[in-house]
Design a binder for these strands. Structure first.
Lengths: 112, 112
DNA sequence: TGCGAATATGTCCGTTCCGACATATGCTGA
DNA sequence: TCAGCATATGTCGGAACGGACATATTCGCA
C-alpha cells in the first residue's frame, strides 16, 4: 500500500491491516479449497462424459490411477497444477472450468 | 493438430489417434501454462489496483516478496496453488480469474 | 543527481507432492 | 457365486516447490 494512502486512512481513524489481512488470507485459502472441490467434480464429469477410465486418463497425463482417484475425491495431497492439467486432459471445456471458479457450488457433472 | 499435418501422418502410415492423445496431453499442459501467464497478469493488476506492494501482499499469504515477484514474472517454479491463492488474496474478483481461464490472451491488468 | 523504496534475481535446504506400486473394496454380468 | 474390471486407499523414495535470505536493479521524488 502506498504510504500516502495509508496515512490518509490512518488520519481518518482506520487501523490499517491486521484483521483484514487475516481475513483476506483465510478467504483466499477457502476460495482455493472450494475451487479445488469444484474442479474435482468437473473432472469426474468430463471423464465420464468421454467414457474414460481413471487408468486411461492417468496415462494421458503421465500419472497413475490412484492419483486420479484422489483428484476426484478432493484429496488435499493433490496440487492445483495436477488437477487443472488433468481436467483439461479429460476434455473439459474452458467454460466448465470458468464456472467452477465463479460459482463453485453450482458445478455439476453432466453425464454424456 | 493441423488437418494437413494429420493427412501427412496418415499417408505415412501413422495411427493418428495415438499421436493426438500425445498432443492432447501437450494441449493440456499448454493450456495450463497459458492460464498461469494470464493469472500472473491478473495478479499484477489486482495488486496495483489495491495499491499493495509485493512485500505487503507476500505477508498476506505468508510468502516472501521474491516469490510474489516471480509469480508476476510467470516464473515456472511457482505452483498454480500459490499463484491462485495469491490472486485471491490480492483481491481479484472471481470473474477476473474466470476470464483468465476462458480467454487467457485477452486478460489485461486494468489499473484502478 | 542521489537516496530510499519497490521490484527483480539467485541460492539454500526443509517440506510437500509426485509417480510407482501394492492391495483393498466395489460393481456388473455370466 | 465369483471372475474381471473399475475405483479407492496406503506407502515409499525422489523430484519439485516452498520460505527465508542475500543481493542486484529499477523507479520516484526531494
Amino acid at each position: 500500500m502506498k504510504t500516502s494512502t495509508k496515512k490518509k486512512l490512518e488520519a481518518a481513524g482506520w487501523r490499517v491491516g491486521d484483521a483484514q489481512e487475516f481475513l483476506g488470507l483465510t478467504d483466499a485459502e477457502e476460495q482455493l479449497v472450494e475451487m479445488k472441490l469444484a474442479l474435482a467434480r468437473v473432472l469426474r464429469g468430463a471423464r465420464e462424459k468421454h467414457q474414460l477410465t481413471q487408468a486411461e486418463l492417468a496415462k494421458r497425463v503421465k500419472s497413475s490411477q490412484s492419483r486420479v482417484a484422489k483428484m476426484e475425491a478432493g484429496d488435499p495431497s493433490i496440487s492445483l497444477d495436477l488437477l487443472m492439467k488433468t481436467v483439461f486432459a479429460a476434455g473439459a471445456k474452458n467454460s466448465d472450468v470458468a464456472k467452477a471458479v465463479t460459482s463453485p457450488r453450482r458445478i455439476l457433472a453432466k453425464p454424456a
